[in-house]
Amino acid sequence: MSVEVHNDEAQNQYTITADGEPVGFAVYQVSGGEIAFTHTEVNPKEQGKGYASQLVRYALDDVKASGTLRVVPACSYVATWVQNHPEYQELTRR
């Protein structure tokens, strides 16, 4: 199975696909020096397979690599994920 994540800047969301089919997305808004993740969703038929975690990890790694934006985990999934992965908490304090 091929899993890919990409940033769809035109839609302000990161999208995850499995074998070319979309299975989830994480919506964001950029304002000033912040990127707020406002909603994360995975197709109910695909939940429990780790797609949401892969999606959030990719998105946060992308934010980290691309500059100095501060992450605002407005989505409850992203907030919990960051809390459970202390190595990403620094992104919320930039």
Rank of each mutant, 00 (worst) to 15 (best):
M1Q: 02
S2V: 13
S2D: 13
V3G: 03
V3W: 00
V3K: 11
E4N: 14
E4P: 01
E4S: 15
H6W: 10
N7M: 11
N7P: 07
A10M: 13
A10W: 09
Q11V: 00
N12G: 03
Q13D: 02
Q13F: 00
T15C: 10
T15R: 13
I16W: 02
I16Q: 04
E21K: 14
E21C: 01
E21R: 13
E21Y: 05
P22Y: 10
V23T: 08
V23L: 12
G24I: 06
G24W: 06
V27A: 08
V27R: 05
Y28R: 09
Y28V: 09
Q29W: 06
V30A: 15
V30K: 13
S31F: 07
G32Y: 08
G32I: 09
G33M: 11
E34I: 02
I35E: 10
A36Q: 07
A36F: 01
A36M: 06
F37I: 08
H39S: 03
E41M: 06
V42D: 03
V42A: 04
N43E: 12
N43Q: 07
N43S: 15
P44D: 11
E46V: 00
Q47T: 13
G50R: 05
Y51H: 15
Y51I: 08
A52H: 01
S53A: 15
Q54S: 11
L55S: 08
V56T: 07
V56D: 04
A59T: 04
A59G: 08
A59M: 08
D61F: 03
D62V: 04
D62M: 02
V63C: 07
K64H: 03
K64A: 13
A65G: 13
A65D: 12
A65K: 10
S66V: 00
G67V: 09
G67Q: 04
G67I: 10
R70Q: 14
V71G: 05
V72Y: 04
V72P: 10
V72Q: 04
A74T: 07
A74V: 04
A74K: 07
C75T: 03
C75M: 06
S76N: 08
S76M: 04
V78Y: 01
T80P: 00
W81I: 09
V82E: 02
V82C: 09
N84H: 13
N84F: 02
H85A: 12
E87G: 07
Y88H: 05
Y88S: 10
Y88T: 08
Q89H: 10
E90C: 08
L91G: 11
T92Q: 09
R93K: 14
R94E: 06
